[in-house]
Amino acid sequence: MTDYIIPFLMLLIIVYGGVRGVDVFDAMCRGIKDGMGVCAGIFPAMLIMLTAVSMLRASGGSELISYALTPVARLLGIPGECIPLALLRPFSGSGALSIGSEIIKSAGADSYPGRVAAVMLGASETSFYTIAVYSAYLGLKNTAYTLPAALSADFAAFVMSGVAVRLLMQ
């Protein structure tokens, strides 16, 4: 079922664009050029993060951290490997993408931890960054309950990632 979504959506977007008189090729080229800017934007943080993750893994430190966090993970019903991802996610989007891709790689893309990591990445956002951008723009001195509410949403996303993968994919 999920195999159909992407090809059909692409066809729909292109046909609808053509029907409405959009220069589809020109629009795509323009959008792709913007996409290269997006790639350039996420690259620096990704390089730093992957270097640090890779060094920590080689030292044997990441196994120890995963092991130490296993009780917490068990309580939340998510794999131990995914806890560092959950901790970093609210702070850095590209950092989380780097850690997530490392988990997906080492545990296997279609393994349980690999899938939970992917769902966690897909179901959450960089909360601290978002709050910072909005409150700076609005000149908000007091964001009241915004941060705890945003973190509740993140927490729900992480716990549900484990539940959803077990429920829908195993």
Partner: peptide, 10 residues
């Protein structure tokens, strides 16, 4: 990322 940005532009 680039491909999807292109489709979104359409």
């Amino acid at each position: 990322i680039c491909l999807w940005n292109g489709l979104l532009e359409i």
